[in-house]
Simulated assay, not measured.
Amino acid sequence: MNNNEIKHTEKLIERFFNGDTTLAEERSLYRLFSRGVLPPELEKYRPVFAGFGSMQAGGEHRARLMPAFRRAVCGTAAALVLIFGVSAYLNYHEDRMLARVYGGSYVIENGHRIDDLSMIKTDIETALGEARHIEEHIEKRSPIEQAEQDLLNSIDDPDERKRISEMLN
């Protein structure tokens, strides 16, 4: 570099520190200080401009917007994943509730034991409904009717039970 170039560069550096340089001038300073050999009077500025040059953006970047169709597809996919996740959780939660309430229950159909709670849930609920109905029916009976029924249930002989039932009615 000749003396004029060095003086011009020093003035440019002074303007840089005063905040009066343009982006193009700043880029030329960054390029200058990234070169291998510099005059001794400029060498002291190398670390400063190397640091500023490393922070320089690679150029202007424009934000790219996702096309509307792609956003719609992504939104739909996200909604489906959410629906699937909620559905899986609800199924899991229902299985846990069934196990907590009906754990250990089973049904025998055609000689086969079925203990999958999701398959026998309706059978269990039907049996519980019938049991509630029987309890309600029993609660509606008078104490005398209850005693008579208990007496009849305690008799093993069917003929004797029939004869006593006829006498009570």
Rank of each mutant, 00 (worst) to 15 (best):
E14S: 10
N2G: 07
R100Y: 04
G104N: 07
R15C: 01
E60F: 15
G59Q: 03
Y45P: 00
Y102L: 13
S165C: 03
G85Y: 06
P158W: 05
V86F: 07
S105V: 03
A147H: 10
Y30D: 01
R163H: 14
F33C: 00
D123S: 15
F84D: 10
L12E: 06
H112K: 15
N4Y: 07
P158T: 05
E160Q: 08
E41K: 00
F84R: 05
R15V: 02
G53D: 01
G103L: 02
A88C: 09
I164R: 08
D159A: 15
V101E: 13
G75F: 06
A50C: 03
F84E: 12
A77C: 08
K11L: 05
S34E: 07
S165P: 03
F49L: 00
T9D: 00
I138L: 08
A127L: 08
E26D: 04
D150S: 13
E135S: 02
S54H: 01
P40A: 11
R71Y: 01
T126S: 13
R27I: 11
T126V: 11
G104H: 01
R163T: 14
A68T: 04
I144E: 05
V48M: 02
G75V: 06
I138V: 11
I155R: 05
L42Y: 01
F49A: 00
N18D: 03
D20F: 10
N18I: 00
L90Y: 04
G111L: 05
I13A: 02
E41L: 00
V81Y: 14
E125F: 08
Y92P: 08
H133S: 12
T126A: 14
K162G: 04
R161P: 06
A77N: 14
P158E: 11
E94Q: 15
L65E: 15
N18A: 04
E166W: 01
N169H: 15
V73A: 06
R71C: 05
S142R: 07
L23R: 13
M167A: 12
I138K: 12
G129S: 15
V37G: 04
L82H: 07
L168E: 10
K11G: 05
A131P: 08
P158S: 09
E14I: 05
L117F: 08
K140H: 02
I155Y: 09
E136C: 01
A131I: 09
G129A: 15
L152M: 05
P47Y: 00
E109Y: 10
T21A: 10
L42W: 02
E148M: 14
G103I: 10
K11A: 07
C74N: 14
D115T: 10
A68I: 05
R96N: 10
N91T: 14
C74M: 13
H93M: 09
L12H: 06
A88P: 04
L80D: 06
V48L: 10
K162T: 09
D157F: 01
L38N: 06
A147Q: 14
R46W: 00
E60K: 12
L38E: 06
I108W: 03
A99K: 15
G75K: 09
I155V: 12
K162E: 11
